[in-house]
Each structure stands twice: as C-alpha cells, then as structure tokens.
Computed example of a mutant assay.
Amino acid sequence: MTTTRTTIAASAPVRAVPAHTFTHLVRLTDDTGLLEHARHATPRREHGYCTDDVARGLVVTSRETDPSPEVLRLAETYLAFLTHAQDGQGAFHNRLGFNRSWTDQPGLGDWWGRALWGLGTAAARSPASWIREEADLAFVRGASCRSADPRAMAFAALGAAELLRADPGHEPAAGLLSDAFAAIGDPGSDPRWPWPHDRLTYANAVLAEAVIVAGDLLGQPAIRTAGLRMLRWLLDIQISDGHLSVLPSAGWQRGGPRLRHDQQPIEVATLADACATAATVTGDHHWRRGVQLCVAWFLGDNDVDAVMWDPGTGGGYDGLTLQGPNLNQGAESTLALISTLQRRGSVVLDDLDGR
C-alpha cells in the first residue's frame, strides 16, 4: 500500500458537506437511553442499551453550542442513564436490557472511560447549569477510580481535558489526566512504529489525543510532542492514494500483514477528533487536512467510493466492506458520523465544500 502525508487527490470529486443532524439519534433514543443497534434504520429493542454509546451521545449533544430543545432533551436522557449506571464507588454498568435490568456488574472497562468522557464534556460545555453540576458530581466520583486498561484511561482523559480547559484548578481531572499518560505509555523513538503498544486495535487515535492533551494541559511539552508524533504516524499510515483508508476491525499487529476491511466509522471519528485537537493546540494546517480526509471518508472518498451515511434518515452506516457499506445504522456509527461532521466547523474544508 502506498501512503502520502495529507494530500487529497486532485482528481477527487467535489462533494457537498452536509450539516450534521440528530434525526436518527432521536429515532434511536427513548425515555431510558440510546438503543445500541438497528436493522437498517429501525431500532432493535431486543439488543437494549449500552453505556458506551450513551456516553458518546452525551459527548456529541454537549458539544452543541446552541442546542435545540430536542438535543438538550437527548443530553438530559443520556445524563440520567449514566448516573443510573454508576455505582457508589464510581464504576459503571455497561449493558442494560430493554426490560431495564442490568445484565452485567459495574466495572472499569472502556465504558467507564467513555462515561467520564461524556460527563466531563457535559460538565464543561452544557448550557444547562443543572446538567453541568450533576455531570461534574458523577465525573468526580468516577475519577476516583483507575482502570488497568490504557484505552479506558485514554477515553477518561478526554473528559478530564474538557474540564481542565473550563477549570484549570479541577484537581480530580488533573490527577486523572496525569495517570492516563502513565497508563498509555511512552511511544518510543522508533520512527517505523512510534506507538506504545505492539498492536493497533480500535479507536486508536484516542491514545494519541490523550497524550497530546496531557502534555498540553499539564505543561509538559515533551509529552505533547510525543502525542503529536504518534498522531502524525497514525494519520500517515492510514492514507492511501490521497484518501483515508482506516485500519480494519481486526487491527494490525506490528510486523504482521495489514488487512483493508472491514473498516469501522469509529476509527474515522476518533481520528477526526484527534486531528481537530492537534490543530487547536498547534495551529498547524496539516491537522486541518486530516479532518478533511475524515469528513470525506463518510462522503464516499474511501477505498470503494461508497457514501457511508443515509441522507434520508441521517444515520451512519455500520461498516465499510469490500462489497460496500453495511447498511445497518446503529448508534456507534451514527454517533461517529455526527462527531466527525461537528469537526467541520473547526477546520477549513474548502476542497470539500467546493468553494
């Protein structure tokens, strides 16, 4: 596979960039939470809800600077779900059946990290004071815990970063962010694999973003530089012939063969988030081009030239295969679409908008 830094092919077709919409998220949400799966656009109630998706829902709804009453109601529902999922020690259940019974015990897996990401974002950004206050209480309780999983700590770090930007004196957030970098580890100096682990799995860019924000907000320039080096490499290896070709769900082992499919929207969304953060921290146009590539992936500038969302429903497709998109429009893929399109407002997207 050939790679290039951030060059969008000159012959790529001009694609109009849509405004993000919460229409399908509303469709997937009831008065309990966000249903995890869908058959095409129809929610599958039998599969219930998960904290992972509800937390991501709280992230995207809290990012809205002027949310509509409908979007604010979504945020309220997601916050209520997360506070119900949390136990007295700060851990979280992940899976709730449609009958409103938990099917697992509270834990500190990825869902704990994502819950803190959502709570930190709501506490820092929500226009509703009661949401900010309740989210901060739940965040502080959760931030008293530490996960043994580096990726869970990375997700939690993003919530801590949101709070530290709003309140630099927030001690629980600062402590969590510092420990997250220690959990992720040093990427090392090998330019062929500047990554702290021997395998890339999923949502990989969250690790780089967590290192970047830890260095930036804790006043550690060397750590910030390490995170930027991780992200630059991760972006470079996922560009093929001028378009984004993200790592597949099977991941990639160092020294092993790399597959091309199936590609998941979550990879694109986390890469867009990380590039947007890097652009804000550095002011480097390189990272804005990274966000461009992520937006373009959803619009069809990918390995099989397939549009990865349904304009009729506002839902994101669940995955990209060699035969084209998986047309189911579950919560994770729809949230990835919304999250990526939200980033278009923070970067220059002239090539995509056709201006």
Rank of each mutant, 00 (worst) to 15 (best):
R5F: 14
S11A: 15
A12Y: 08
V14A: 13
A19Y: 12
A19C: 07
H20V: 15
L25C: 10
L25M: 11
H47T: 15
C50V: 10
C50Q: 09
C50R: 08
T51I: 12
V54Q: 06
A55D: 09
V59N: 01
T61N: 09
T61G: 04
P69A: 09
H84E: 14
N94R: 09
L96G: 14
S101H: 15
Q105Y: 12
P106E: 08
G118P: 02
A123T: 09
S129R: 13
I131N: 11
R141P: 14
A143R: 06
A157L: 05
A160P: 06
A180T: 08
I184W: 00
P187G: 09
G188Y: 03
W193Y: 10
P196R: 05
P196S: 11
H197Y: 06
D198H: 09
L200G: 05
A205N: 00
L218Y: 04
M230H: 01
W233D: 05
S240P: 13
S240T: 14
W252Y: 12
Q264Y: 01
A269Y: 00
A274N: 02
A276M: 03
A278S: 08
D284G: 10
H286S: 10
H286I: 07
L293A: 13
L293M: 09
D303K: 08
G316S: 08
G324Q: 06
Q329N: 09
G330R: 08
I338P: 07
S339M: 04
Q342I: 06
L352V: 09
